[in-house]
């Protein structure tokens, strides 16, 4: 059975809660596992995600139809690849309306691509409510709830909300652990490839790092270990989610075949 491809859609209602970081980590996860994802950065203003993967990324302005075509019509490529799509909070509603209007999920599935939404709620009840609505409206997509430890403690109002309660028994979920604030500046260096950093050969021989990663060569052992531990936990959590998604995909294929 051929390896399943995924269209990973990373979204959040709010800005600055780790969405681009998660999209980057997912892209690096795929690179580490030998996949070469197509990356779409829908923030045509900041282009932050594209800055980390200049050769794999396409910047999309969702207000422009030709750009919408660049993003969604890639499904029709002869050999569709795994995709990572970072949906800027500014285009949150527009992106998902467009996705529903063009029946993206059905088209993706018909081409062997499993659409998956990774949603990061903020601390407020509204972001949980919008996540609940998104899960309801996009029933034909897998939905992963991502709790970002960096967002902080969730308030009482949110915990009491029906939207929060609706996610209590949601199975596909993962935590994005918090990185020591001391190291966050280091990983924001666009020259740093997190997947290269985690490759064993690089870990053992930092002096041989490619020139694009020279910034890491100056890391203290403590900083390097701290980032590596954090990445290990992130990738472990991601692996659990991706394994679950693959299992789901296989069982769906078996069901389809038996019909």
């Amino acid at each position: 059975m051929p390896e399943k491809n995924f269209a990973i859609i990373v979204a959040s209602l709010r800005a600055r809660n780790g969405k681009t970081l998660l999209a980057r980590l997912i892209a690096d996860y795929f690179l580490l596992t030998g996949d070469k994802p197509e990356i779409f950065d829908t923030d045509a203003v900041e282009r932050k995600l594209a800055g980390f993967f200049p050769e794999l990324s396409t910047v999309i302005d969702l207000d422009r139809v030709p750009d919408q075509m660049k993003l969604f019509d890639t499904l029709q490529a002869a050999l569709p690849a795994t995709q990572v799509i970072d949906v800027t909070h500014r285009s949150f509603q527009k992106f998902f309306k467009l996705m529903r209007d063009i029946d993206y999920a059905a088209e993706a599935r018909s081409r062997g691509i499993e659409p998956v939404i990774f949603y990061i709620p903020d601390r407020d009840p509204e972001s949980y409510e919008q996540g609940r609505l998104l899960r309801e409206r996009c029933k034909d997509c897998s939905f992963v709830l991502v709790e970002n430890a960096f967002v902080g403690e969730i308030g009482k109002d949110t915990r009491r909300s029906t939207a929060y309660a609706a996610f209590k028994s949601h199975y596909l979920r993962m935590t994005l652990p918090q990185l020591d604030p001391f190291f966050t500046g280091v990983i924001e260096d666009p020259k740093l490839s997190l997947s290269d950093f985690m490759r064993p050969a690089q870990a053992e021989r930092p002096a041989r790092m490619p020139s694009a990663q020279l910034s890491l060569a100056h890391l203290s052992r403590e900083a390097g270990d701290g980032i590596r531990l954090w990445l290990k936990e992130v990738f472990k959590n991601l692996k659990w989610v991706m394994d679950e998604l693959k299992l789901r995909g296989e069982s769906m294929e078996i069901e389809d075949a038996s019909r």
């Binding site: 139809v65 075509m69 969604f72 019509d73 499904l75 029709q76 467009l98 209007d101 063009i102 088209e107």
Partner: peptide, 13 residues
């Protein structure tokens, strides 16, 4: 055919 998914979506809507 090989018509754009996006444009087909606009026409459908």
């Amino acid at each position: 055919a090989n018509s754009s998914l996006v444009l087909r979506g606009y026409v459908r809507t």
